[in-house]
Nucleic acid binder design. Structure first.
Lengths: 194, 194
DNA sequence: CACCTTGTTGTACGATCGTTCAACAAGAAA
DNA sequence: TTTCTTGTTGAACGATCGTACAACAAGGTG
């Protein structure tokens, strides 16, 4: 499908050059189609950006490989720090869409939905995993901290890749959960191909 | 000085509309000067962006109000979460320059300097504050986590301001330090006008 | 006075932007 | 075959981009 190719070409443009490289000319050249095709498949360029964001966040909405709380938490952390997603070009695409949210109402609505869904799923897994006799435990708060830590480490790692490893970042997240009573077992450093 | 006005106008443009709003026309209109003035005071637009970044990070380089470890750590956290800096328009300016770092070599060099200096100062304060008889304590690692948590909470707060308060974010940072052996006293919720 | 520097203005240039649109190829429906 | 829909192309449009540059005002120095 040409639509899919255009969306993925758009993501590559965003990742390589930010919103400045997100031009009709660039995207069509990247997708190796002619200039007029975008406006045939997408009403406007903003429409393309919206569908790009939907594609970038699709994995947050699709069902996880398992609904077991422990697996959900591990999947959230490990999938964020695997080598294929943890790259500078991915970061720039995210930085761009996050910035555009401020001035694009449709994008903001979609992002809000995705984020709330994501956070709620994490909070649910945290609440299910922590032992019941801990009264002070706040799943919502910890979910927010985990998301912040993941995004913050992403940012730091992509801007200074030489300072620490992907494994370090992953362990920081497990440590955060541990320190607040979520005794999640940290898996080995090998690839877990799920 | 006109140079200063142009720099601050540029920051406002970046904050409001990202790199797309960072145009000669926009900046000059914002600064209420004529179109040709930017290229008189700045060699090129990239040069202006570089000096804007220097201005945005000046407070990270200037000496802190105190060199006492406890004060340094509190200042890092509290100054990041006070109401005047913790705003969505500030976030977008940061998102933009972080994105530009990928394709602007001069900007990357400057950012690297500032970041290393900032992280080293935090690590030094952490090492000085933690008690000496804790062998497993890694100041560098915790400094990285603290910076990640601050930036991540910034991101989350600015994109979903209704989900949690500024005070919540601040407490999350103090909790992170506490959980790893840095028994920093969390100050009251009132303004600390230092 | 003449001369030079500095700050400031506004115009002009070629390049590139997003969108519109006429044209055409190919396959399905009649 | 004719007709219609769909996918695709490339040219054209006005708008806006960053930069270069001529022009001028003001002040210091000879």
């Amino acid at each position: 499908m040409r639509k899919r190719e255009l969306i993925e070409a758009g993501i590559r443009c965003l990742g390589n050059g930010g919103i400045s490289a997100f031009t009709i000319d660039n995207i069509c050249r990247e997708a190796q189609v002619s200039r007029g095709l975008i406006n045939h498949h997408f009403r406007t360029k903003e429409d393309l950006l919206l569908q790009i964001y939907a594609a970038m966040t699709a994995h947050l909405v699709e069902s996880f490989p398992s609904e077991v709380a422990e697996h959900v938490l591990r999947h959230v952390i490990d999938s964020n720090f695997d080598a294929s997603t943890f790259r500078r070009s991915n970061l720039r695409a995210w930085l761009t869409v996050w910035g555009e949210i401020a001035t694009n109402a449709e994008l903001r609505v979609l992002h809000e939905q995705r984020y709330q869904n994501y956070k709620a799923r994490i909070a649910r897994a945290l609440a299910a995993f922590v032992r019941r006799d801990d009264p002070g435990f706040e799943a919502e708060s910890l979910a927010r901290q985990l998301i912040a830590m993941i995004d913050g480490l992403w940012l730091e790692y992509c801007l200074h890749a030489e300072d620490f490893s992907l494994e370090d970042a992953r362990h920081d997240c497990y440590r955060l959960l541990h320190s607040q009573g979520v005794a999640l077992r940290v898996p080995g450093s090998g690839d877990r191909g799920d």
